[in-house]
Design a protein around this nucleic acid. Structure first.
Length: 209
DNA sequence: TACCAGGAGAAAA
DNA sequence: TTTTCTCATGGT
């Protein structure tokens, strides 16, 4: 919680995810896989150029048509198939919001192209479930601070964060958003922000002892 | 020019 | 079962 308070005091509330509705959150979660958000924004803008971004509007597109629209996000052929798999899943399974979180997570993970991080993005930011998202920014920040081994398995880290913070989806939402803001907009791999620079120096000194 | 960016699935070992 | 490879655009 000390890290959270420090981030919140530094950057303020983030009000995430940057999307107009839950469906756009899900689309963004797939498009941002291993991709800079600026490229995702271009792809979403192209999807919206045809009209409102909805489940039915995407289901009307062929894989090739969708791939051309999301081209700026990279891996467009792969992501086109993944997005259409997600859309078919959403169309085939009504009342997903009524499912308990664990079952909803398992069903999302069974969809082609939805791995642990993407599933948890969707659970937290589209379904407002208390699930902590472990992404590259989370691993980088907390390993720099010497608080975790960034090679640990996804599930191990997720459970550790959830145990430490308790079942508060609002806090998980804000915490992860702050971690991303810190990693993306403040502290890039180089140059490091002041906090991470000091953490790196401490680790370097410790390693020399 | 080379590297990096909010992963996931398939193939190879 | 674990590790490695592949997918691709845009910014720095």
């Amino acid at each position: 919680m000390a890290i959270y308070r420090r981030l919140f005091e530094a950057y303020g509330p983030q009000h995430w995810w940057p999307a107009e509705d839950p469906f756009e959150v899900m689309v963004g979660a797939v498009l941002t896989q291993n991709t800079a958000w600026s490229n995702v924004e271009r792809a979403i803008a192209r999807l919206k150029a045809d009209g409102p971004l909805t489940l039915s509007s995407l289901l009307r597109l062929s894989p090739v048509e969708l791939a051309q629209r999301i081209r700026p996000a990279g891996y467009f052929n792969v992501k086109s198939k993944r997005l259409l798999s997600l859309c078919r899943f959403l169309a085939d399974q009504p009342r997903l919001e009524a499912l308990p979180t664990r079952e909803l997570r398992e069903r999302l993970l069974a969809v082609h192209g939805i791995g642990p991080e993407t599933a948890d993005d969707i659970l937290l930011y589209a379904f407002e479930r208390p699930v902590f998202v472990i992404d590259a920014y989370t691993r980088r920040l907390f390993s720099r601070l010497g608080l975790l081994d960034k090679e640990l398995a996804y599930e191990t880290l997720r459970r550790a964060f959830e145990r430490a913070l308790g079942p508060q989806s609002g806090l998980f939402n804000e915490y992860h958003a702050l971690i991303v803001h810190h990693g993306k907009d403040v502290c890039r791999p180089r140059p490091l922000c002041e906090v991470c620079r000091l953490a790196d120096q401490c680790r370097f000194r410790a390693a020399r002892r």
